[in-house]
Design a protein around this nucleic acid. Structure first.
Length: 290
DNA sequence: CACTTGACCTGTCCGC
DNA sequence: TGCGGACAGGTCAAGT
């Protein structure tokens, strides 16, 4: 799923497209994706306008004029795609790899319609993702929000904070610690592998056994790959698309992720895939050793 | 408390 | 072609 850079890319798109639009209708096609309780929806969603669109970790927050917020987690296969009113009616004229003009489809779980007849589709093949309507003041009290760690790209997040927080998980592997959302927010499988390759750390290394200078290098590499990925519109392996229904291009810049059998860009050794922390994991076996 | 594993779903790919 | 199993960008609950 969308990791921090993908969610941030969607946020940037929605922040450009949604503010000041007013909700006119909502259709929930899967109760687990959006448990639409008619009374609340009618009172706090319909007629409300979008104030702004924010992100915390991998969660999107669409703040409404009603003092409620749509809280959205895309999990593995979620998509939020905005379709303008002219495209809702005509659809054609878009590139064949664009979803615009093809929605709703069989993965559509929620369909929002605005007063001007433009639409926002929540698509999610695997149904792990969710949309909730929550009082804005209650958002910080959601379990996930209380437990989630600091934003790795924020200006005040230092290498010192990064090292301190990772070392709280000293007996697990460095990859499991990176993926733990309570340690650092927003890191997922792609950028864990990419940053560990950058810092030349084997993902299965016990946190306590990673030298502090290597953790400092990991901090720099993680911020580098995540910023680069945001610049490239995220990584599209399979289902991920931006709010405009377009794919991101970071996978063209990936050094190890999903590149097993290909050459390491630094030393030419063949990249291998293994399993660490229950996840598919990609490394250069010459440069990342236990 | 720290850590690991399976469950949640649908779709695709790979080997027989 | 069909069928079973493994796997896919994330989190939880339940287990040790």
């Amino acid at each position: 799923m969308p990791e921090l850079p993908e969610v941030e890319t969607v946020r940037i798109g929605l922040a450009r497209l949604l503010p000041e639009r007013a909700f006119k209708a909502v259709l929930s096609l899967n109760a687990k994706s959006f448990p639409n309780t008619d009374a609340d929806t009618r009172e706090f969603l319909l007629g409300a306008t979008v104030v702004d669109v924010r992100r915390r970790a991998k969660v999107l927050l669409i703040n409404l004029s009603s003092q409620y917020s749509l809280v959205i987690h895309l999990k593995m296969t979620g998509q939020l795609v905005f379709v303008d009113s002219s495209d809702v009616r005509f659809g054609a004229g878009h590139p064949s790899d664009s979803l615009i003009g093809k929605l709703p489809d069989k993965s559509t779980r929620v369909e929002f319609t605005f007063e001007d007849n433009s639409k926002l589709f929540f698509n999610d093949q695997r149904k792990f993702g969710w949309v909730r309507l929550v009082p804005t003041a209650e958002v910080p009290n959601i379990d996930f929000m209380r437990k989630v760690g600091p934003e790795p790209l924020s200006a005040d997040f230092t290498a010192g904070h990064f090292v301190d927080r990772l070392q709280r998980r000293k007996n697990t592997t460095i990859k499991a610690a990176l993926l733990d959302q309570t340690v650092i927010a927003g890191v997922g499988n792609i950028y864990a592998d990419e940053s560990l390759w950058g810092a030349k750390i084997h993902p299965a290394t016990r946190v306590a056994d990673v030298p502090v200078p290597a953790l400092h290098s990991l901090y720099t590499e993680l911020r580098y790959v995540m910023n680069l990925a945001i610049e490239k519109g995220g990584s599209s392996n399979h289902t991920y698309v931006t709010a405009e229904g377009k794919k991101g291009s970071y996978m063209n810049f990936a050094r190890v992720f999903r590149r097993e059998g290909l050459a390491c860009p630094r030393c030419g050794t063949t990249i291998v895939k293994l399993r660490v922390a229950g996840r598919g994991t990609h490394i250069c076996p010459s440069e990342q050793v236990l």
